[in-house]
Computed example of a mutant assay.
Amino acid sequence: MAVDQTSPAYPAPEKADVAPEGITPAGRLRNRFDDVYRLLTRQPLSLYATAVMRIGFGLLYTIMLVREFPYRHQIWGPESPWSPDLARRMFDEYGLFSVLNLSDDPRYFEACYAFALITAVVFMLGWRTRVVSLVFALVMFSFYSRGVFMTDGGDNLAVLMSVYLCFTACGRVWSLDARRHRRHDDGSRPEKPGGIRILRRFTVTVMHNCALVVMMAQMCVLYGAAGLYKVQGNLWNDGTALHYVLKTDSFRPWPALSDFVDGHQVLIGISCYLTVLVQVAFPFSLFSKLKYVLLPILVGMHVGIAVLMALPLFSAVMILSDAVFLPDRFYRAVARKGSALIAAVSPRRAATRPH
């Protein structure tokens, strides 16, 4: 989590005073608390990271709804083997909820599906994000609850992250909201009274930064628990777990590729030990540059899962959730390089275009 010190909307944070020699432990603790307080309350952190998550989850859910459109009735609709009546009985028992179960009318389901698709697109574009983020979280939870027996850990994490994003300022950059604010920041609109403006900014900043902390903690718990769980298994201890995964028929979209990878036994063993080591070590690397070494390994691991195990949605959710750990300067650098590349390619296309 890094402070965006170049954002024009917020002043750069002042450097903390150097603690004098001979300070007591209580004084050091108080200074540490003051530093954390200033970090959480001065300005929203990682605005670009939350924007990437907003765009990514909106796009991912849009793709999923479009892809499953021909099968929507069998998965979430009235024709599902898990009928609406069975779903209601389960909701009453476990305290779940889904707007899809408010009516059994097929026309109502079609309207809900169209509304969900529109919501995902609008959320991705960042229009009226504060309100739309709440609606998007409700839509994701409704579809998740309606088809809970066909979900996996990726769906569960996506629902959690959509709820956390409701408390962030994920529409502050790379959004239609940001474009609208730039147009209106010409002094033509009357400003709110100073006290209300300060209170609003303070509340938004604290909620945003605390949500970031919760998202990071969620990923640390996920990776740490997964790594510790693997340590307890004999197959991971002897380095053969991935061999059995590659031999499972349900996770072999390309058997020839799976057999080719499985034929490199040393690579399989190294991958097993590296997976456990990285997952256990990642929560302890957050406050060091080691996380910039572990994150690419984790991303590579998720890409391998997507290709070899045919779990692209799960891998995409994990990669998008890992985006919260990258600083804003990384995303700004990527945006600058992308803009420079487009600018370099565009004149060439214009020059080669027939007149």
Rank of each mutant, 00 (worst) to 15 (best):
T6A: 10
P8K: 12
A9Q: 05
K15P: 08
L29K: 11
R30Y: 01
N31W: 10
Y37T: 13
Y37G: 02
R38Q: 14
L39S: 03
Q43L: 12
S46Y: 09
G56E: 10
A87G: 13
R89W: 02
G95I: 07
S98K: 02
V99M: 12
D105T: 06
D105I: 02
Y108A: 07
G126V: 02
T129D: 03
F141I: 07
F149Y: 13
G154W: 06
N156V: 09
S162K: 05
S162D: 06
A169M: 12
V173F: 02
R180M: 13
R182P: 01
H184C: 06
D185N: 15
I196G: 00
L199Q: 04
V206G: 01
M207E: 09
H208M: 09
V213Y: 09
Q218V: 09
C220M: 14
L222A: 11
A225L: 14
A225P: 01
W236A: 05
G239T: 06
A241L: 13
V261S: 05
D262E: 11
D262C: 05
Q265C: 05
V278I: 15
A281H: 02
F284Y: 12
F287D: 04
K291F: 10
V293P: 05
L295T: 11
P296S: 08
I297N: 03
M301W: 02
I319Q: 00
F325P: 01
P327L: 08
R329Q: 04
V334W: 02
A343D: 10
P347M: 10
